[in-house]
């Protein structure tokens, strides 16, 4: 059920996820984005484990963390902004976890935006990357009056 603008809770949780980085996930992602495989081959760490492409973790997690919430609660929307801070690489065998939250909502140039954020951690609590994004909401229920 769609929310009213005033009811969108800043700080509210939008989803949580835990998953393992696998070779299959990496292969699927590399093929989907047509990523130059040399970049992946160059990214094998000293312990011999493959390093995941930079976007794999947020790409794999975004539906559970954010998109389902957006679809159910905000309705039609499009991503307007996306920011990443890459801290440590995700590698095969890691268990990654994250909790998505609403970080802000704002109006700009007659349009309304909702911002989200999360930090992805490995199983030891080491941060992997910070993910901040904002969507512009398009539904009639979010149109500004006047």
């Amino acid at each position: 059920m769609l929310q009213d603008w005033d009811a969108i809770p800043i700080g509210g949780e939008t989803g949580r996820i835990e998953f393992e980085i696998t070779d299959a996930l990496i292969d699927e992602y590399v093929a989907a984005i047509e990523l130059d495989p040399r970049l992946i081959e160059a990214e094998v760490d000293a312990d011999g484990r493959r390093v995941a492409p930079l976007d794999l973790v947020p790409k794999h997690a975004m539906r559970t963390l954010f998109i389902d919430y957006v679809f159910d609660k905000l309705g039609p929307s499009m991503r307007a902004k996306q920011a990443y801070e890459f801290v440590n690489p995700a590698k095969v065998g890691m268990r990654v976890s994250a909790v998505g939250r609403i970080s802000d909502k704002y109006e700009r140039r007659g349009k309304r935006y909702v911002a989200f954020e999360t930090t992805y951690f490995d199983q030891d609590g080491t941060p992997l990357l910070h993910d901040r994004r904002a969507v512009i909401v398009l539904g009639d229920n979010f149109k500004l009056k006047g």
Partner: peptide
């Protein structure tokens, strides 16, 4: 990543607007 390698994948930042 192609330009900076680990200088981007470990400590790099990007903020994009569509």
């Amino acid at each position: 990543l192609a330009a900076f390698g680990r200088g981007y994948s470990r400590g790099g930042e990007i903020s994009a607007t569509f």
